[in-house]
Design a protein around this nucleic acid. Structure first.
Length: 432
RNA sequence: GCCGUGGUGGUGUAGUCUGGCAGCAUGUGGGACUGUGGAUCCCUUGGCUCGGGUUCAAAUCCCGACCACGGCCCCA
C-alpha cells in the first residue's frame, strides 16, 4: 500500500494551508474591490469542449477519461475555457461580465521546478468589452495582486499580438505553422541563447533568415504604427490606474500562448529573479468565446500560478507552527478534570480558542505538549485554585505565572496580546 | 516521452566507494519523579522504495520499475 500522494501532487497540512488561506482571503478582497465575483466550475468538462480550443492532441497533456456512461471527459487544465463556456451558453448576460477564481487545475506534465500535476491558480476574466481601459484594469489588478500578496515588485512585460504578427508579416513568414514556430523560438530567448535557438530552428527546418529578420525588428524596437497605438493606450491607462512606470516594460519577444490571445498580452517577472520565469500572464482573447457560441464576445484576463508564486518569493513562514488553540487548560490531577473540562467549554462558548488535556497526562507532559504546539497561554487548575475561586495563568513565552480570579478571567484573557491580535484580524476581514 | 541526480524507522542522518550483526539523533506511545519537571531518567515503537540478477553473503554491486528533485520537449 503506497502512502504517498500520486505523482505530481501533494498534501497541504494545516501549517501550510493556513498561510494559503490568508493569501486567498487577500486575493478575494482585492478582486471584489474591482467588482469581480467568484466562480467555481466543475473539475471536469466534456473532452470535446477542452479540445475545441487546442485540438485533440491535448489529450496527451491532460487527464482525460471515459466515465461509466461512456462520456469522454477531461480534468480542467485552464480556467478560462469553462468560463468561456458559461458566457457562450448565455450571451444575454449584461456586459461587462467580471469573474474571478481561485482553484486547482490538472495537467499531465512531467513534474519539475514550479510544475505539479495538480496545482493552484488564481485569476480573473473581464468579458464583453474591447476598450483599452479593460486591458489596463487587468494589468493593474495583476500588478496589485502580486505586489500586495508578496510585498515584492514585479515587472509587467507587455506586448501585442498585432505587433508580433506585423513583424512576422514583414519578415515574410506567411505560413501559420511557421509563424507559431518562430514565435515559440523568440519566446525561448529569455532562457536560451540566440545561437541555441537558431540551431533548434535549423533542426526543425524553419527559416533562420526569417527568425533573424524578426529579431532585427524586435531589437530595433521599430514597431508598426497602428498596432503600437493601442498598446500605448493600454499602458497609459494602466499608469493612470496607479501602475508605476518602472513596472511596465514593452517587450516584443513576449509571445507565450499566442494562438489563444488576439491582442494585448503580458507576462510578469519578479524583479531580480527574471530567470525563474513568469508567475502570472494574461491578455486579450476576443475569439475564444465565439468558438463555443454563435457570437464573438471580446474578453481579457489573466491567470496566476499560486504554487509558483509562493515558491519564487520563498514565503518563509516555515518556522511558524500551526497553532490549534490560544489557551490550554491544564488540570493538575484527576480530581479536577471535570472542573477543567467545564472551564474549557465555558471559554469556548465565549469565543476563545481553547483546548484541554484529553489523554489524562500529568502536568509535565501537558506543558510539553503546549510548548510543542506553540500555544501561548496555559490555565493551570488544581484543588488550590478551585478553593480560592481562581486559576493560575501561565504565559508560555516568559514562563511567568499569576493568579487570576475566576470572575475576572474573561476580561483578562480578552486583553492578552495573542488573543487580541487574532480578534482584530477577524474584524479587519469583516470590514471589507 | 527523453536526460541527470537521488531514495536507510514519522522526521533528520551514519553506513554504500572497498558486500560481512543497520547505528545515532529527534519524534510518537508508555512510565518514574506525587503542583511548574517546558527539565531529567527509563522502557517501548518503528526503517534499507519495489521486483529481478550476481554472490557463501546485498542497504551496499548490476538491470528494470516506481517516486522525489532538477533539466529537455511542451506549455492552451
Amino acid at each position: 500500500m503506497k502512502l504517498q500522494p500520486p505523482k505530481g501532487t501533494k498534501d497541504l497540512l494545516p501549517e501550510e494551508n493556513e498561510e494559503r488561506q490568508e493569501i486567498y482571503k487577500e486575493m478575494r478582497d482585492l478582486f471584489e474591490t474591482y467588482g469581480y465575483g467568484e466562480v467555481k466550475t466543475p473539475a471536469f468538462e466534456h473532452f470535446e469542449l477542452l479540445a475545441e480550443k487546442s485540438g485533440p492532441q491535448i489529450e496527451e497533456e491532460i487527464y482525460a477519461f471515459e466515465d461509466k456512461g461512456g462520456r469522454k471527459l477531461g480534468l480542467r487544465f485552464d480556467p478560462t475555457v469553462p468560463i468561456a463556456r458559461i458566457v457562450a451558453s448565455d450571451p444575454s448576460k449584461p456586459k461587462p461580465i467580471k469573474y474571478y477564481y481561485i482553484t486547482r487545475m490538472w495537467r499531465y506534465d512531467q513534474p519539475q521546478a514550479g510544475r505539479m500535476r495538480e496545482f493552484w491558480q488564481a485569476g480573473c476574466e473581464l468579458i464583453g468589452t474591447d476598450e483599452p481601459e479593460a486591458d489596463a484594469e487587468i494589468l493593474k489588478i495583476a500588478n496589485g495582486l502580486l505586489e500586495s500578496v508578496t510585498g515584492e515588485r514585479f515587472t509587467m512585460k507587455v506586448n501585442s499580438r498585432d505587433i508580433s504578427e506585423a513583424i512576422a508579416e514583414e519578415a515574410g513568414a506567411t505560413d501559420e505553422e511557421e509563424r507559431m514556430e518562430l514565435f515559440r523560438a523568440i519566446d525561448k530567448l529569455d532562457k536560451k541563447s540566440r545561437r541555441e535557438v537558431r540551431d533548434e530552428l535549423m533542426e526543425k527546418d524553419v527559416s533562420v533568415n526569417k527568425f533573424d529578420d524578426m529579431m532585427d525588428q524586435i531589437e530595433s524596437e521599430n514597431v508598426p504604427k497602428d498596432a503600437d497605438e493601442n498598446l500605448e493606450k493600454i499602458i497609459d491607462k494602466a499608469k493612470e490606474l496607479g501602475v508605476s512606470e518602472e513596472d511596465i516594460e514593452i517587450d516584443l519577444s513576449i509571445a507565450r500562448g499566442l494562438d489563444y490571445y488576439t491582442g494585448f498580452v503580458f507576462e510578469t517577472f519578479l524583479k531580480g529573479k527574471e530567470d525563474k520565469g513568469s508567475v502570472c500572464s494574461g491578455g486579450r482573447y476576443d475569439s475564444l468565446i465565439g468558438l463555443y457560441g454563435n457570437q464573438e464576445v471580446p474578453a481579457t484576463g489573466f491567470g496566476l500560478g499560486i504554487d509558483r508564486l509562493l515558491e519564487i518569493t520563498e514565503k518563509k513562514k516555515k518556522e511558524k507552527r500551526y497553532r490549534p488553540a490560544d489557551i490550554y487548560v491544564c488540570p493538575v490531577n484527576d480530581e479536577v478534570r471535570d472542573e477543567a473540562l467545564r472551564l474549557t467549554q465555558e471559554l469556548r462558548s465565549d469565543g476563545f480558542r481553547v483546548d484541554t488535556d484529553l489523554k489524562k497526562r500529568g502536568i509535565s507532559k501537558q506543558l510539553k505538549y503546549i510548548d510543542s504546539k506553540d500555544i501561548p497561554y496555559a490555565l493551570i487548575i488544581g484543588p488550590r485554585e478551585i478553593e480560592n475561586e481562581e486559576v493560575s495563568f501561565k504565559d508560555m513565552e516568559t514562563g511567568e505565572e499569576r493568579a487570576i480570579a475566576m470572575k475576572e478571567m474573561q476580561d483578562y484573557l480578552k486583553e492578552l496580546p495573542a488573543i487580541k491580535q487574532r480578534s482584530m484580524k477577524k474584524e479587519d476581514h469583516e470590514d471589507l
